[in-house]
């Protein structure tokens, strides 16, 4: 069973999409890194924690039919790589949608949900998932 270490459970990044901005080059990273892979040593002490807006577009996606035991109740589920507005990509589930709704380039926003639990009455893991933006408007016609 894939379980996360305790420090990860208490990591604010997975609840609030807290990343870092390198104040040497201006690039954003998620999850937080100590050193900017572009600026290297110049970035030491200049990596500022920032909350990402949580809005972005689907870069690629898949419908997962076989997978990890702790997610078996959710299968099949949609998994996407999302390119956030700040330019960083994250991998997460997309919920509140049907297969035919999802396409590359579609706008989504982050929401906090239950990810999994360690057995029937075990520790519950929370974290970010994404929901489509303006899905209803799309179904009814072009948004204005």
């Amino acid at each position: 069973m894939a379980t996360a270490p305790r420090f990860w459970r208490e990591n604010p990044s997975r609840y609030n999409l807290v990343g870092v901005k390198c104040n040497s080059c201006g690039r954003h990273f998620f999850p937080p890194r100590t050193i900017c892979p572009v600026c290297h040593r110049k970035s030491v002490g200049m990596m500022e924690r920032v909350k990402l807006k949580g809005t972005g577009k689907i870069f690629s996606m898949t419908e997962v039919h076989e997978g990890l035991e702790e997610l078996s109740m959710q299968r099949p589920y949609f998994l996407a790589m999302v390119e956030l507005d700040e330019g960083v990509k994250v991998t997460a589930q997309v919920i509140d949608c049907e297969a035919c709704d999802l396409e590359i380039g579609m706008p989504v926003r982050a929401t906090m949900r239950k990810l999994s639990e360690e057995g029937p009455s075990g520790v519950i893991h929370y974290g970010y998932k994404f929901v489509p933006v303006n899905l209803k408007a799309k179904a009814e016609g072009p948004a204005h």
Binding site: W8, L68, T91
Partner: peptide, 28 residues
Amino acid sequence: VIQSSAADQEWETVLGATFPALHALMAR
């Protein structure tokens, strides 16, 4: 599960990314 440990456990696997799913993202 063991094969998925070749990917990032904290920022891919725990969020639902199986090893086949990551390759499916490449394929799509």
